[in-house]
Amino acid sequence: MRTDDTRDDDPVAAALTEGSAYERLRVQRVSVFPWSLAEKLQRLGVVLFAFGVAVGVFAFVSPDGMNIPVDPGTVPTYTSLVALTALAMLALVALVLSILGVLREHSDSLSDERAETILVVEELCALTGFVTGGTTAAIAVGFCLVPYAGPEAVSWLVTTLERSPYAAVETAYPIVPATLTPAALLLGAVCLLAGRRWQTQ
Rank of each mutant, 00 (worst) to 15 (best):
D4N: 11
D4H: 11
P11K: 12
A13G: 11
A14E: 11
A14K: 03
A15D: 14
G19S: 09
S20L: 08
A21I: 05
E23M: 11
R24P: 04
R26F: 06
V30S: 15
V32N: 13
L37A: 09
L37G: 13
E39C: 08
E39I: 07
K40D: 13
Q42F: 06
L44Y: 03
L44V: 07
G45Q: 06
V47A: 13
A50M: 11
G52E: 03
G56P: 06
G56V: 06
A59D: 08
F60P: 01
D64T: 09
M66L: 10
T74Y: 07
T74H: 10
V75W: 01
Y78C: 01
S80A: 15
S80Q: 04
A86R: 01
L87A: 07
A91Y: 01
L95V: 13
L95P: 01
I99H: 08
V102N: 08
L103P: 02
R104N: 14
S107W: 02
D108R: 15
S109M: 11
S109G: 13
L110Y: 02
I118D: 10
E122Y: 03
L127W: 08
L127A: 14
T132A: 15
G134T: 05
T135Y: 06
A137W: 00
A137E: 02
I139R: 01
V141D: 00
G142V: 02
V146G: 00
V146I: 14
P147K: 00
A153I: 00
W156L: 11
T159K: 12
Y166H: 04
A168F: 03
Y173R: 12
V176L: 05
P177Y: 03
P177R: 03
A178K: 09
T179Q: 12
P182K: 10
P182Y: 06
L187E: 03
Q199H: 11
Q199F: 06
T200F: 04
T200N: 14
Q201W: 09
Q201Y: 08
Q201K: 13
